[in-house]
């Protein structure tokens, strides 16, 4: 039908009225925000699972025996610092200063690595003490929740290094700015999730 209309030229011509031009990447930020919201739901499920199972120690170790709040405080500091250094990277990006942006991104990555190292040290320490994910429902849900957050940070760092390479090769192009802004949202979002983790898992765990 449509093809005959276009070839004959006499029949009705169809226009897709709703289809107007969008600037490239104009919807990326909203789309990425929607992804973050769906990620938020994943974490909500994991928090709910931890909330339900967090008290089932199966006669194994409880939060009080395992958690070291000093370590968690240092960890939280690392993530908070990485959040503000990423903010500084965004501000220098706005001014178009490539070297300063790269430097702040590198600092952010180092804080992220410090966070991950401390978390892995904590996990290794717990597993060494026999507090493995198989030990109890509490530990299964703990490792799933905190591990998923750690995995997100890991992917954030991989993304950060990728973008630093991109910026080094192509400069602060519009596409690279957009990508850096997406990672900015991702990074700050992980910090928001961590607020939930240290409050709900670590601090409230010590109160049990």
């Amino acid at each position: 039908m449509a093809s005959s209309a276009t070839t004959a030229g006499t029949g009705p011509v169809f226009h897709l009225e709703e289809e107007h031009a969008h600037a490239e990447g104009s919807s990326t930020m909203l789309g990425f925000w929607l992804y973050l919201m769906s990620d938020c739901l994943i974490f909500a499920m994991l928090f709910a699972a931890y909330g339900v199972l967090g008290g089932n120690y199966a006669a194994g170790p409880a939060p009080k025996d395992l958690f070291d709040l000093d370590l968690v405080a240092v960890n939280t500091t690392m993530l908070l610092l990485s959040s503000i250094t990423y903010g500084f990277a965004m501000l220098t990006m706005d001014k178009g200063r490539v070297a300063a942006t790269q430097a702040w991104l590198a600092v952010t990555g180092l804080f992220g690595l410090a966070f991950l190292s401390i978390e892995l040290y904590e996990f290794a320490h717990m597993i060494h003490e026999g507090a493995t994910p198989q030990r109890s429902a509490f530990l299964s849900s703990f490792f799933t929740l905190v591990g998923t957050h750690g995995l997100h940070v890991t992917f954030g760092i991989v993304w950060l290094v990728t973008l630093m390479t991109q910026v080094a090769r192509f400069g602060l192009t519009e596409a690279n700015r957009r990508r850096l802004m997406c990672l900015s949202m991702f990074w700050h979002f992980l910090d928001v999730v961590w607020i939930g983790v240290f409050t709900f898992v670590y601090l409230m765990g010590m109160l049990r």
């Binding site: 990447g25 930020m29 903010g87 965004m90 501000l91 700015r177 802004m181 949202m185």
Partner: peptide, 12 residues
Amino acid sequence: GHAHGGAAHGSF
């Protein structure tokens, strides 16, 4: 004027 879709960057 960049196409950053209305997402603000914040200030120092």
